[in-house]
Write a protein that binds this DNA or RNA. Sequence first.
DNA 1: GCGCCCTGTTTGACATGTCAAGCAGACTGT
DNA 2: ACAGTCTGCTTGACATGTCAAACAGGGCGC
Lengths: 171, 171
Amino acid sequence: MTRWLTDDEMRAWLGYRRLRTLLDLQITRDLAADSGLSDADYDVLSTVSDAPGHRMRLGELAAEIKWSVSRLSHHVSRMGQRGLVTRDDCASDGRSATVVLTDEGWATIQAAAKLHVASVRRHFVDLLDPADLAALSTIAGKVLAHLEQVTPPDAARRATPRTERDKPPAT
Amino acid sequence: MTRWLTDDEMRAWLGYRRLRTLLDLQITRDLAADSGLSDADYDVLSTVSDAPGHRMRLGELAAEIKWSVSRLSHHVSRMGQRGLVTRDDCASDGRSATVVLTDEGWATIQAAAKLHVASVRRHFVDLLDPADLAALSTIAGKVLAHLEQVTPPDAARRATPRTERDKPPAT
DNA sequence: GCGCCCTGTTTGACATGTCAAGCAGACTGT
DNA sequence: ACAGTCTGCTTGACATGTCAAACAGGGCGC
């Protein structure tokens, strides 16, 4: 028999789903209006700007932000046309492509970050007290510990059969 | 000056972001593997199946799940081709279109729901204790109370200027 | 040094989402 | 009753994401 969610569980789950939907919508809107960037753009720019030299291997970047390499390749091309990043053929390995922030990309992410933080505060962080934040970190920690086990860092490529992949953790 | 996030705030925010990314990925994968449905399909089917008569006005449905009417119209067409739903011209108002679950759609969502709940338990609910769930509900409540005020139910259509729309709530 | 098979990336075809325009039924005032 | 406008939905063009195939360099065994 299916074990359905209790009221409390349902409230928490639906709360999460709705939070996710509305918060993301709002953050996305702010980002577009404030800085002319999509969420995708922001993820790429902020991640690359954290890397030494404002440059990062395409594959690593994709893994870091959990995108398919293909998606990233396409998106980098589009961001390239807008002048935010460049591709740079790495010397040591002829296959590799490196994504590099342009000056404009760097200026853009710096300006965007300020406004983005404000947006995150306005719609999320500043609404919560320290206990809420701590609870959230705890929750994220528990769930992520599980998920990173279910889907190990590079599992996307392995053709692991479903029955294997989905087995609940030994606990 | 920009007020950056403190370590605790950052941990909570990044935790949320990462949770959102990985959890959604996993749930989406399970849903596709278990039932051959996308998240989008599931949202539509489960929402319509909750409505009386398994039928719902297109516009209402769109508002409920926070989609653009256009997106829903396209998606309903595609689901129609797969035999999950039908369009039904409502009698009382010649403009309206009503989305109706087919028998197959109903059977599909019933089967999918069981497996989906299991997936949600496995990767989320069962990992958390009652205190976590309560905390999450609290957090969602606070943030949603704010967001639903910032973006009132039907605000999507109003061409409200940004400066107006983004004003932080009076508090 | 040459087949062979990896591995990292690109590409193209197709699925999905967005935006603005189009369209037809319903109100409203005269 | 009918012109003008509004409302609910559809459509088409385009942007973005996905999947599988193609491509090219690297590393290995011989």
